[in-house]
Design a binder for these strands. Structure first.
Lengths: 348, 348
DNA sequence: ATGAAAGCGCTAACAC
DNA sequence: GTGTTAGCGCTTTCAT
């Protein structure tokens, strides 16, 4: 017996309070419209008595704001995105908006579907972590809904706000940190470059090494091709183990490893341990992301901080400014990386 | 210049295609209503050309289903809930519903606000992990919206579906596992009992020990009172460290520790390591939850599995059944715990 | 200060 | 098979 209550409506209240629907609406919306205090009170009381819940659809239809904001991220299963989402939610709520989250699992098809869904829901704007290389689709969407800010993945040539992380600089930072600690033979263990961010990190590492007269050779670069991006974080862990196995089998003599992200680094550490390789005694490792568990693991992981919660907040803030100011000034923010020094890198 | 497009409407299409609005509506909804194929095609084409996006508010107002499901959880920051939420989303999408997530941060006030918000949004039902002890509020809500299923926290005396975890049994299992491994002196490190689940675990442990002629003494029970439940998972980690410090300072001779949850266990492990105490060499530890990182940490954490993803799926499934069947059969499921044996408990 | 009424975009009952 | 039209609940202009 699911509720079929046709709900209390404004006319119901109007009748019960002996006033017009206009008055009720005015009172209920608390606008500064002159209404006799006595009436106002009566209406409010009746509304409460009848347990009135406004039907937003009527209001929306009349042209109101939905106050919804659509968000598309790859997955909540990855703590990095969980943090981003927390930041987004925090900022949205603070400003009176309701976030609507959709997990695309990095599937371009799903991404498209969600965008349509959100458009139908008449969201005020969207926050998207897109993987879609095909920018024509997004360009079309932008024609209908210009309140879009992309985050986390830089997508060039799109006339759209973008909050992202300076992966190139991050790659440089990681390499430089290792070099400063005396490492000259550095390896890079990564997943395939379907995400542009990975390519950027790679480029950053190469740039940093080059400027020190070193180089990241093919033999030091381990690239794992996987079918499913982000099905589950345990998969990323397994990817790390696989990469470590390749590294070991290749008899790679590098003294330090840069891992494409923290969870992958966890997998690498585990596999190394299982092979009796001590971290950081025998080999050093640095990760990317700085998810909260990186501080909890053994050894505590030195990593490149990508301010997840802040990214979420910032992205939401930029979007909301845009929605409210109704101006189209595209910002293109690039968040700066920093290294979080812990215990997984040894000075040699 | 945020979009002010008054959008393409059905009448627009009708005019452009030279048919009536009714025809357009019928075609667009793809109902099996007889329409001349030729017209059908024309309408579809015009709709595509005009880039038509239906205005759901009109449809809703007409009495349609929102297909939204509201979800209230403490926080996404805790990987356990992130997993639950993933499970919920998966099931919802599969069945054609859109989840709307709200993080209450275990604040009863926020919880109430969200419930109102969701009621206004005319969700088809709600999935709530409530912390609210005051059941009268929820009882009132149930009068207006009977499609509610509570999960994760058992709340007795509420005429409402409930999916929860058998914490008592979990506590027993943890203690028994330790006992089977030769431990007779067991300590319990926990956060304060604001959540009923913690009390249940405690009771379970005591029951198991009693049945083996052992007992969990006051001196073996460390309870940390904290102000903020779930502000951030790093807080829980710190809580673990604090508990470990208390444990050490008290010179507690227990050979094994049961931690109230995995992240707290991580903190305990870290603090112990920092004090030169080897896990599991010197002392064994077992956690609760089995979050994914528990498998990644060193040593891999032995823990009581609480099937997070499955809980989410199941809760969503039960709710959807309820919504669609329109019957009011309350189920009260109690998920069974199991121990996940890894490396943090030593046989003695 | 209050009320009557139009209309937002859609669906469906009814008429043809 | 197709079209006309009456609302769904709300806000808001315009009249009073």
């Amino acid at each position: 017996m699911a509720k079929k209550t046709r709900g209390v409506t404004i006319p119901d209240i109007a009748k019960a309070a002996g006033v017009s629907t206009a008055t009720v609406s005015r009172v209920l919306n608390g606008v500064d419209y002159p209404v006799r205090p006595e009436l106002k009170e009566r209406v409010l009381e009746v509304a409460k008595d009848l347990n009135y819940t406004p039907n937003i659809f009527g209001r929306m239809l009349k042209g109101g704001k939905s106050n919804d904001i659509g968000i598309i991220i790859p997955t909540l299963t990855n703590p990095f995105y969980a943090q981003v989402v927390s930041g987004i939610e925090r900022e949205c709520r603070k400003r009176g908006y309701n976030p609507i989250f959709c997990s695309s699992y990095s599937d371009p098809e799903k991404e498209r579907e969600f965008i349509h869904l959100l458009m139908q829901k008449r969201v005020e704007g969207m926050l998207i972590s897109t993987i879609n290389q095909d920018s024509t689709f997004l360009k079309n969407v932008l024609k209908q809904q210009s309140n879009i800010v992309l985050f986390d993945q830089q997508t060039e040539d799109l006339p759209c706000d973008n909050i992202s992380f300076d992966f190139f600089e991050g790659g440089k930072l990681a390499a430089n940190y290792l070099i400063e600690n005396g490492h000259r033979d550095i390896a890079f263990l990564t997943l395939s470059f379907v995400r542009k961010s990975r390519q950027s990190i790679y480029d950053g590492i190469k740039a940093a090494m080059k400027s020190h007269g070193l180089s990241l050779t093919k033999e030091r670069t381990f690239i794992l091709s996987i079918k499913n991006e982000y099905e589950d974080s345990i998969d990323e862990f397994e990817n790390g183990r696989m990469l470590a196995r390749q590294f070991i089998e290749a008899n790679c003599p590098a003294s330090a490893i840069i891992a494409i992200n923290d969870i992958t680094a966890f997998g690498i550490i585990r596999e190394m341990s299982d092979h009796g390789v001590d971290i950081p005694g025998d080999i050093s490792i640095i990760g990317f992301d700085n998810i909260s568990t990186s501080a909890m693991i053994n050894p505590p992981l030195t990593t490149i901080n990508q301010p997840s919660f802040e990214t979420g907040r910032l992205a939401a803030r930029v979007l909301i400014e845009k929605i409210e100011q109704e101006i189209d000034m595209n910002s293109n923010l690039l968040l700066k990386p920093s290294v979080v020094e812990r215990k997984s890198v040894k000075r040699i």
